[in-house]
Design a protein around this nucleic acid. Structure first.
Lengths: 200, 200
DNA sequence: CTGAAAGCGTAACGATGTGTACGCTTGCAG
DNA sequence: CTGCAAGCGTACACATCGTTACGCTTTCAG
């Protein structure tokens, strides 16, 4: 079991699972179909992930690692507001991308709440502290004025993401292109600054 | 087939479907289980609604009628900003209630997009024009200043609802109580006014 | 009172799913 | 070369689902 071969097989499985998830939904994605599409075997899937929930939990964790990696590359130590400006489009692209939306659909279809919890723990709970750090730094530098960090965070997320995720999840909104993402992120930041400017 | 008895049976079916939807999810809700819980028969369900999708489409339409009714009672012809202030909590309560969230989960689990489209057409597309009318009236009276009605609408919805719906749908957020609803609606309105005040 | 429509309860059918078992192939270690 | 672990492909047991069908009961119009 060479590690690179193992990794490649995991990649194939993940890709197959995402493809099926996006076209057929969580309930419509069977373990056999994933195995077949990944040219793997049923037994391997169950040996590696335990059960169907485990497979998608693993998917969520993989995605979380990717998100963390991308956030780290996108957040250099320049001025906090500049970091925020760079973070916005990256976040929007991530949160509204096909993969993240598929995972949210899976979580919505899991009545036990396991996937939802995993998604929140490795998604929102990972992303928000990083933005929070940026907001705190901006306040320390006098670039922002707000009382509660939590509220400022919620405000920024609301302005940036709004209800786009749920609309993507129920299938009434296509993935935005780069221009739309940039425009929305800029608008959100402008409004956020207008509400948290040091003058006001 | 007296109309009131028919109505009562429809109510029982709807209640049973909601209960199952909320506890077991869309895929986990079988037609037989709905029939049994509603003390109705399988055949009746199929005769009335055609198939499973039809049943939940009917649920969505019922919900839309309730929403419209509530919106109409909540929106008297007082000052537009007062109407907006009254509308906020009502909307939040509706959009984050167990029933609406269950319907959104169902739409998320329907890979064909039929339920999502129905939900958008009878939900968002019904609600937004009503708020839009209020915003337009407020602008006409000089209470608000904005360029594009669409953008003002999106801003208001983003501030009011934010990402609460998706968090409810994936099960990581409980339904807010009346206090939380009121507080959030007030905060949203304050921020909205700060961004669309005639002075700015 | 009578007849028919509506609807309940249940059985049945075909399809599909999850999770398990098993034989065969592959690739690597000693 | 030999042995073994990993894994593919397939088949299997078992359950459940959507949907249809059918006999029996209820209800109500004429």
């Amino acid at each position: 079991m060479p590690d690179d071969a193992h990794q490649a097989r995991e990649d194939r499985i993940a890709k197959a699972a995402y493809d099926l998830l996006e076209t057929r939904g969580y309930a419509g994605t069977s373990m056999l179909a994933v195995a077949k599409a990944a040219r793997a075997s049923n037994e391997t899937l169950y040996n590696w992930y335990g059960d169907k929930l485990g497979l998608f939990r693993a998917l969520i964790e993989r995605n979380s690692q990717d998100v963390r990696a991308l956030l780290d590359t996108q957040a250099p130590e320049s001025a906090p507001l500049q970091t925020l400006a760079a973070l916005g489009p990256a976040l929007l692209t991530l949160l509204l991308g096909d993969r993240a939306i598929a995972l949210n659909r899976a979580a919505a279809g899991d009545a036990t709440g396991t996937l939802g919890r995993a998604l929140a723990e490795t998604g929102r709970d990972v992303i928000l502290p990083r933005i929070g750090a940026v907001l705190a730094a901006a306040r320390n530098q006098g670039d922002l004025r707000y009382d509660q960090l939590d509220e400022a965070l919620d405000l920024y997320i609301a302005l940036l993401v709004g209800d786009l995720q749920i609309r993507r999840v129920i299938g009434t909104l296509p993935a935005p292109d780069a221009d739309a993402v940039r425009h929305r992120a800029e608008t959100a930041l402008t409004r956020f600054l207008a509400l948290t400017a040091p003058a006001g």
